[in-house]
């Protein structure tokens, strides 16, 4: 079980995985825009996407959980 938090304050452009997808550590799972730069958010651990908690277009910061892995 691992939470994927936003790495920095910015706008969530898209979540690039679906619930049930299997991801490996360092796979890109979401795209964030900060300071006019698009940044990929990478999975912190191996796992399966359990729940997606943030929506594309939302403004997020490091306290926000984008998705949980199990």
């Amino acid at each position: 079980m691992a939470n994927v938090n936003a790495p920095m304050a910015g706008k969530l452009i898209s979540v690039d995985v679906k619930v049930g997808d299997t991801v490996k550590k360092n796979d890109p799972v979401a795209t964030l825009e900060a300071m006019k730069m698009q940044i990929k958010v990478f999975a912190p651990a191996d796992g399966k996407v359990a729940e997606i908690k943030a929506e594309a277009g939302a403004n997020i910061d490091p306290s926000v959980v984008i998705m949980t892995l199990e």
Binding site: P7, M8, A9, N26, M35
Partner: peptide, 10 residues
Amino acid sequence: PQNYLLMHAM
């Protein structure tokens, strides 16, 4: 890949 330096670098 777990390294996000952007805000520090800004």
